[in-house]
Design a protein around this nucleic acid. Structure first.
Length: 469
RNA sequence: GCCCCCAUCGUCUAGUGGCCUAGGACACCACCCUCUCAAGGUGGCGACACGGGUUCGAAUCCCGUUGGGGGUGCCA
């Protein structure tokens, strides 16, 4: 009886979770959800030197934010060391592994002297060394033959064993390396699909060889995803590129938008519909359809997706999602609520909300120099007339949207902002008013904004601007 | 050096021998709509890296070249 697929995401806590890893999780998760299988989480923390336990929290937290949940409890390799040592012992006993006391310097020096390819030369293969301080355990790779495997995204892959060096299984401090722990755990956890980054392709024959030597009869299905690259077409790196998922969260991206976008890197739905519910992606996703070429992470397109997702929110939900990004809390929420829909349609990031409505909250608005020049000073006498007429009309009109609109139309006509047919030219006439009241050239629709601002504060700002002229 | 891989608009992709004078999306440009800005509408710019084959026919298959990437660690 075939059991349900088991996938795994196996990060090492050596850095914050970045978008490349997030995509790897997503693809694993998609397969798990689609097949009714499981996605397990395994923390690969065998390298005690670089390991930063506090980063595990970041990884878990980010996965939770993305809503890409794992099944069961996370497995920590650091708590399973005995398992790997046991496997190592078996390999020594069967002659598949041997102890080596060469230092990296010695290995390098010999390679240089030899003039050939760098890498370990098998120096200790037949020295019969015993385990001891300063000795690492190496795997004896076959000298001939090939190791082949089937890859869902790249098809059949073959490696000549002669190109494989005798790699380290156990460090001289006794800790297992990635290859050993990875294989042992995948087999032990019953992982059926290994879906991971392309950078692991070359290590796969070694992984397989360990399994064979152990007599495990274990053979998962592989899928190596093309790497994500930056504008220089280099693999995304945490050092060079700012690609931490937590940073995107802080910038005001919605997890749904990020996940949707990530799904489209290296894969596309047959019908070409890009922005769609995750459930549909789960249904349509196929590892076999994943592209083999690297993909550039395009923030501009992500931003567009984000704007679309924000616009799809209903006003109440929008306010809730924006809430964590409002540094003045309830005071901002109060002024945002009446214009929530108008603001929601104009922001691409949640961090853009506050600057857009701040003029409604503050007591005194600072007018940006650029706006003052462009929208007021440049219009000269007509701007003066517009401000005067507006102060006049808004002082007495009713204080609701339509009344305000009518008042501004009348003021525009009075100030001479009219076209050939005598209709008010509001695109120009509103500029001085907007600048005076909001301090900026762009923002939410003016009439609705004034309703929220209130008559007193509106008039006060208009008078102050007028006084500057 | 050696091993592995990739190659369609600027970017993400559709395309699996004829439906392709190559489709969509983002970006960009123009116009329309319009109280600013968005959104929306219309149109535009824009690609099969190159050279050989195979075939009646190639973006699609094969070989080579060029370009790019990944790996080559007592990192994962």
């Amino acid at each position: 009886m075939a059991s349900a697929p088991r996938l795994r995401f196996a990060p090492s806590p050596t850095g914050y979770l970045h978008v490349g890893s997030a995509r790897a999780v997503l693809f694993n998760w998609l397969v798990a959800r689609q097949t009714g299988g499981e996605m397990l989480l395994r923390i690969e923390d065998t390298d005690t030197e670089r390991n930063r336990p506090e980063l595990v929290d970041n990884i878990l937290e980010v996965l939770d934010w993305l809503d890409l949940r794992w099944d069961g409890e996370p497995v920590h390799q650091s708590q399973r060391i005995d398992l790997y040592r046991e496997a190592a012992d078996k390999l020594v006993a069967s002659g598949h592994a041997y102890w080596c006391d060469c230092t990296p310097e010695q290995i390098q020096a010999r390679a240089k002297k030899r003039g050939g390819p760098p890498g370990y030369d098998g120096f200790c293969r037949s020295r019969g060394l015993q385990s001891g301080p300063g000795t690492a355990l190496r795997f004896r790779t076959p000298d001939d033959g090939v190791t082949a495997f089937e890859d869902l995204v790249r098809g059949p892959v073959e490696f000549p064993n002669a190109s494989l060096e005798d790699f380290v299984l156990l460090r001289s401090n006794g800790t297992p390396t990635f290859l050993l722990a990875n294989l042992v755990d995948d087999a032990d956890m019953g992982i059926t699909h290994v879906v991971r980054g392309e950078e692991h392709v070359n290590g796969t024959p070694k992984y397989l060889l360990i399994g064979e030597a152990l007599g495990l009869g274990y053979r998962p299905v592989f899928a190596h995803l093309p790497v994500l690259v930056n504008e220089q077409r280099k693999k995304l790196s945490k050092r060079r590129d700012s690609v931490s998922v937590a940073d995107f969260r802080a910038e005001g991206y919605l997890p749904e938008a990020l996940v949707n976008y990530l799904a489209l890197l290296g894969w596309g739905p047959k019908d070409g519909v890009e922005i769609r519910p995750l459930a549909e992606i789960v249904e349509q996703f196929r590892l076999e359809d994943v592209t083999q070429s690297p993909a550039f992470f395009d923030v501009k397109k992500l931003r567009h997706f984000n704007a679309e997702y924000i616009r799809a929110l209903d006003p109440e939900a929008f306010v809730e999602r924006a809430r964590p990004f409002l540094s003045h809390g309830e005071a901002t929420v109060e002024v945002l609520e009446p214009v929530a829909e108008l603001v929601r349609d104009r922001v691409r990031l949640l961090t853009e909300v506050e600057p857009m409505v701040d003029f409604l909250r503050v007591d005194e608005v600072a007018i940006e120099d650029k706006s003052w020049q462009k929208d007021v000073v440049k219009h000269g006498e007509r701007a003066v007339a517009m401000l005067d007429a507006t102060i006049e009309r808004l002082g007495t009109c009713g204080w609701e949207r339509d009344a305000i609109e009518a008042a501004l139309h009348a003021a525009a006509a009075e100030a001479g902002f009219v076209n050939d047919e005598g209709h008010p030219q509001m695109s120009k006439a509103q500029a001085p008013v907007r600048a005076a009241v909001t301090g900026r050239s762009v923002g939410p629709p003016l009439y609705e904004s004034l309703v929220v601002l209130g008559r007193d504060r509106t008039l006060e700002r208009l008078r102050q601007a007028r006084a500057r002229l």
